[in-house]
Amino acid sequence: MLVHKIDDEVSLRLFNLDDAEEFYNLTIGSKTYLKEWLGWLDHTKSVEDTAQHILSRCKELVENGGYPQSFAILYNDKIAGTIGFNEIHKANKMGIVGYWIGEKFQGKGIMSKAFKALIDYGFNDLKLNRIEVRVAIENKKSRALPEKFGFKEEGIIRQAEWLYDHYVDHVIYGLLTNEWEYTNKECNT
């Protein structure tokens, strides 16, 4: 099982079918909290739905030449959320990041650690040139991550997503590999 240990508490790991029940329970346990910004929650009605989602993510591993696209975020060996590339455009060497964390895991710095690890992975292992984050304008917690790690706000997509009974606009953040290299070089000197 591929595990990337970030520190003593946080790691990233590939999902497997044995995770379906735990991940489903995390999703449903945080549903009210997550529903403000995630439009797919009503489609997750059973452990089997979660298992099917995990299977689809496993297929991406094969399609990506053995490189995983998404990960379970583990906090003290419990699934705390997920992070990964919702899309990878190989011809353009560009990936779009998506992430969420369960309500009870908020405020522990978990997502910041996972986000940094994913960006490193995207630029260093997947050899992406550009990474994007698209997030609802009013979702201040999710916007804080790309802002913290040097992403540039590049524009607004109006009515980008339907959330149950209304549209929300998205802000697009982008970061290029040379900007990441420069930021990391500056932080390490």
Rank of each mutant, 00 (worst) to 15 (best):
118 L>Y: 03
182 Y>K: 14
168 V>R: 12
170 H>F: 11
55 L>C: 09
59 K>S: 14
110 I>V: 09
89 H>Q: 14
154 E>M: 07
22 E>P: 11
52 Q>C: 11
172 I>G: 02
180 W>N: 01
92 N>C: 10
182 Y>H: 13
130 R>Q: 11
57 R>H: 07
154 E>V: 06
92 N>P: 01
62 V>M: 03
111 M>F: 02
90 K>R: 12
53 H>N: 12
16 N>F: 08
122 G>T: 11
142 S>K: 05
78 K>D: 14
9 E>A: 12
30 S>Q: 09
142 S>M: 05
164 Y>F: 09
82 T>E: 13
88 I>D: 04
54 I>E: 05
186 E>L: 12
3 V>T: 12
175 L>T: 01
188 N>Y: 02
156 I>C: 02
74 L>E: 13
138 E>N: 14
142 S>V: 07
173 Y>N: 07
103 E>I: 01
109 G>L: 13
61 L>Y: 13
47 V>Q: 01
135 V>E: 10
116 K>M: 08
31 K>Y: 00
37 W>R: 10
97 V>A: 06
184 N>K: 15
178 N>R: 13
61 L>C: 02
165 D>G: 01
159 Q>H: 13
84 G>P: 04
56 S>N: 15
69 Q>F: 09
91 A>M: 11
5 K>M: 01
182 Y>V: 01
43 H>N: 11
38 L>T: 05
1 M>E: 10
45 K>T: 14
49 D>I: 04
103 E>W: 05
67 Y>P: 00
34 L>I: 05
